[in-house]
């Protein structure tokens, strides 16, 4: 579904991505992890076309995404921090988005209803709390039935109840609807039931890229956190 080939990205003199090769396919629950500054966000921005790519190649369903925009109709994106124009009402946001995507006739309103967004309709964006804005953002990401969901630290601002609702939705999306979900998160516990594959970035390179089952076998751990810790320990002692 998404192919990344020798992706490099430099900002000024600093090389943030130093040659990334990855392939993501439908039905995968992919956890993109790594320490701060490892290039997770940059990689996501490259996928979304927010950062321009060169040199390197990113293909979406076989098409080069460089300077393209149409492919983004298949992507739902929930940013780490959602900011909206302060004077804008929630209702206006949804109306605008629907009018932009006028070709879509059916909406995925599951999260929209679960988070009770309609109750916020008359509120101005500037008055919403961070958590509320994250809920709006999440509902928006799922609204147009995207084939790919990209979530940057989705659980950071959400309350536990909402967090569970989102996780449940993600599980369904991956397993029942066979879609690709790409999540970055620090809170590895949150990814436990969702992730089927782990990609660990370190200083702009892929340190490892393994299926969860594979990793489980190698480390004989059950919990994600422990698995990674064990694995990294092994790696360093080898290195």
């Amino acid at each position: 579904m998404i192919t990344i080939n020798q992706l490099h990205k430099t900002f000024g003199r600093q090389e943030v991505l130093k040659g990334i090769d990855l392939y993501f396919s439908a039905g995968e629950g992919l956890a993109l992890i790594g320490p701060n500054g490892s290039g997770k966000t940059t990689l996501i921005k490259c996928l979304l076309g927010l950062n321009t790519v060169q040199p390197g190649l990113i293909q979406f369903n076989g098409e080069d995404i460089y300077q393209q925009s149409a492919y983004r109709k298949n992507i739902g994106y929930m940013p780490q921090i959602s900011r909206f124009p302060e004077q804008m009402r929630v209702k206006e946001l949804f109306a605008l988005m629907k009018s932009i995507r006028a070709e879509e006739s059916t909406y995925d309103l599951e999260l929209f209803e679960a988070f009770e967004i309609e109750a916020l309709y008359q509120k101005k964006m500037g008055l919403l709390s961070g958590g509320m804005r994250q809920k709006v953002s999440a509902a928006l990401a799922f609204l147009f039935h995207p084939d790919v969901l990209i979530l940057d630290e989705p659980t950071a601002g959400l309350d536990p109840v909402s967090n569970e609702i989102l996780k449940e939705k993600l599980r369904k999306t991956i397993h029942n609807e066979n879609k690709l979900v790409l999540i970055t998160s620090h809170v590895l516990n949150d990814l436990d039931d969702i992730a089927s594959r782990l990609v660990y970035l370190m200083e702009g390179r892929v340190l490892f890229d393994k299926q969860l089952t594979e990793l489980q076998a190698e480390t004989s751990e059950n919990r994600l956190n422990a698995m990674i810790a064990t694995f990294l320990r092994k790696q360093t002692s080898h290195g």
Binding site: S69, R72, Y77, S82, R83, F84, P85, I100
Partner: peptide, 12 residues
């Protein structure tokens, strides 16, 4: 920020 939000949509 709003520009970024719109950018996530299939808009050139």
């Amino acid at each position: 920020e709003f520009l970024l939000l719109l950018h996530a949509q299939p808009l050139a």
